[in-house]
Design a protein around this nucleic acid. Sequence first.
DNA 1: ATGGTGGTCCAACCA
Length: 255
Amino acid sequence: MKIATWNVNSLKVRLPQVTEWLQSAQPDVLVLQEIKLVSEAFPVDAFAELGYHALASGQKTYNGVANIARASMHDVITDIPGLDDPQRRVLATTINGIRVVNLYVPNGQSVGSDKYAYKLGWLAALRDWLAAELAQHERLVVLGDFNIAPEDRDVYDPDKWGDDVLCSPAERAALGELTALGLVDVFREFDQPEAAYSWWDYRAAGFRRNAGLRIDLILASSALAPYCNASYVDREPRSWERPSDHTPVIAEFRV
DNA sequence: ATGGTGGTCCAACCA
C-alpha cells in the first residue's frame, strides 16, 4: 500500500495538480487537507474517472479534509469524540483493513493566542481518541498536516524559529504524547536528504531558499510500522506553477 | 524590525 498526504490549500484551484499527481505517483490512498469546499461540492467524478473512491468532510472557505482510495472505505468518523468543533479537520476511514486517520491539525497562529489554546486542547482530545482507535485497530496510520515540526532538524533555521508556533515545547510535547501511544514517524525510519521539508512559506521566496519545515507527517502504529518499506517527500509539485505551499509526503507499506 | 504571498471572496480572515 502506497499512501500519501497533501495539504492542497484549495482543491478548487489545485484539482488539476492533484489529478496530475495521482496519475504519475499512483498511490493507493491519498489524503487531502484544506480542500476549502463544502462536502457537496467535492469533485467525486474527477476521481472516479481515475479509478478512485473519494470521501470528503468539508466546510465553506476554510479547512476541510478528504480521503481518496483505490479500494472502498468504511467506518467513517468525522469528529473527535467529546470535542465540540465545527471545523472540519478529521476524516477516519478503514481501507483494506487499515485504519486511515486524516488530520488537519490547527495552526495555532502564535504561542499564547486563543488559537494556540484551541490547538493544544484539540491535540489532547486527539490523543485520547487515538488511544481508543488503536485499541480497536491494530494496523493504523495517522497522517496529515500536523502543523508541528517534530525536531530542530525539521526546521530550516531553528535558531530563527526558536520556540515559536509549530516548534514550541508544548506542541512538541503533544506530538510526543501521540508517539508514546506507539505511533512511529515513519519518515525518520529511513535515511533522508539533509533539509527535507514538506512546507515552504509563500512569502519571502521560501521554496527558492529551501526555507521550509517538515510539518506533514505519517505516523504508523507499532504493528504496522515494521511493514513500512519507504517514506519520502515529493518536492516536485511545490515547483509547479501556482502551487500549494505544501508538497506530498509518501509512505509505502508491504501490506 | 518589518513585511513579504496566496486563498477565499470583496473586507477581513486565515495560514
